[in-house]
C-alpha cells in the first residue's frame, strides 16, 4: 500500500500537470476555429450522450497539421528556430567553456565568489534583464555611445532588431546553464591527470584536447542540451531583441494565439514543436543516465 502511494504521487503529478494539459492542447489542435467562447469547435458536451460523443470525435480532424505544411511560414520558422538555437548553443559553449575552466582552475577560496557572480543575475527578473539589453544594443544605446566615444566607429552599429541581438540575448540568458554542468565536470577532474599527460609527452594544449575535453564531455553535452532545448522554443528574446525580421517558432505561436486568435493552429504548432523537442530531450536523458552509471 505504501509502495503504491509512493508511486502514485509522481504519477498523479505527471497526469495533472503534463498529460491532461497535453491532451487538451492536442484536442484543440484537432478542432476547427470558430467565433465563439472558447474560439473553437467542437466542444465536449456530455449532455448529448453517446451520440453527442460520437459526433464530437467525428468533428476532429488533422486539417490544422495539413495547413502547417501548406503555408511555408511554419516550416521556415521551425528551420530558423533550429538554426538560431543551434548557433546560439555553439556560441554559448564557446563563451561558457573558458569561464567554467577558469572557475575550476581558480584558487579554492575564489570559487564560491565566482559561482555567486554566475548565479547573481538570476535574482533579477528575466524580462528586466532582456529589456536592459535594448538599452545597451539600440542605436543610441550604451554600446554604440561607448564605441563612438572611443572613435572605433563613426556611425552607430545596427545591432538591435537583428539576429545578432537574438544571439547575444540567448547566450547571455542561458550562459549559466552551460557553465554549471561543465564546471561540475572540470571541478572533479584530477589535476594529476593533466600532469600525467604532460609527463607522457603532451604539450599543455594537447593535454587539454586529449584529457580535459574528453573528461568534461558529459558536462559539455548536458550544457548544450540545457541551452538548446529552451532556446528552440524561445519567445521573449526574439520578440524583444529580434524585431520583425527574426522568424522563430515561439513568436509564430504567440501571434497565432493572441493576434490571429486561431487556437487550433497555434495548438498544432505547439504539438509539432513538442515532437521536435522530444528527440533532444530523450538524448539528454540518456546522457544523464550514462553519466550517473559512470559515477557508480
Amino acid at each position: 500500500m505504501r509502495r503504491f502511494l509512493l508511486i502514485a504521487i509522481p504519477y498523479a503529478w505527471l497526469l495533472a500537470l503534463f498529460l491532461v494539459p497535453f491532451v487538451i492542447v492536442l484536442k484543440i489542435s484537432l478542432s476547427d476555429t470558430a467565433l465563439a467562447i472558447p474560439p473553437y469547435t467542437p466542444t465536449l458536451d456530455f449532455a448529448g450522450g453517446w451520440a453527442g460523443l460520437k459526433s464530437f470525435f467525428a468533428d476532429l480532424d488533422l486539417e490544422n497539421f495539413v495547413w502547417l505544411t501548406q503555408d511555408d511560414l511554419y516550416w521556415k520558422a521551425y528551420l530558423s528556430s533550429l538554426t538560431i538555437a543551434l548557433i546560439s548553443t555553439v556560441l554559448t559553449l564557446m563563451v561558457g567553456y573558458p569561464i567554467a575552466y577558469g572557475m575550476a582552475r581558480a584558487p579554492e577560496e575564489w570559487r564560491a565568489t565566482l559561482m555567486m557572480l554566475i548565479i547573481l543575475p538570476f535574482w533579477t527578473s528575466f524580462l528586466i534583464r532582456v529589456y536592459s539589453w535594448i538599452g545597451i544594443l539600440s542605436q543610441e544605446g550604451f554600446l554604440n555611445q561607448f564605441l563612438l566615444w572611443t572613435g572605433l566607429i563613426s556611425e552607430p552599429l545596427i545591432i538591435l532588431n537583428t539576429k545578432i541581438a537574438v544571439y547575444i540575448g540567448i547566450v547571455y540568458t542561458y550562459l549559466p546553464f552551460m557553465i554549471l554542468p561543465i564546471y561540475a565536470a572540470l571541478d572533479r577532474l584530477d589535476e594529476s591527470l593533466i600532469e600525467a599527460a604532460e609527463d607522457l609527452g603532451c604539450s599543455r594544449l594537447s593535454a587539454f584536447w586529449l584529457v580535459t575535453v574528453p573528461l568534461s564531455k558529459n558536462g559539455i553535452v548536458a550544457g548544450c542540451f540545457l541551452v538548446f532545448i529552451p532556446a528552440l522554443g524561445e519567445f521573449v528574446i526574439p520578440s524583444l531583441l529580434g524585431g520583425s525580421g527574426t522568424l522563430m517558432i515561439g513568436k509564430v505561436l504567440w501571434e497565432e494565439f493572441f493576434s490571429n486568435r486561431d487556437w487550433p493552429v497555434a495548438s498544432a504548432v505547439a504539438i509539432v514543436l513538442l515532437l521536435i523537442l522530444v528527440v533532444p530531450i530523450m538524448l539528454f536523458q540518456r546522457n544523464q543516465q550514462k553519466q550517473a552509471e559512470a559515477e557508480q
Binding site: 584530477d190 594529476s192 591527470l193 600532469e195 600525467a196 584529457v211 574528453p214 573528461l215 564531455k217
Partner: peptide, 9 residues
C-alpha cells in the same frame, strides 16, 4: 603518480 592518474576514459 601516487593516485596512479590513469586516464579514466
Amino acid at each position: 603518480f601516487q593516485s596512479y592518474a590513469l586516464f579514466p576514459h
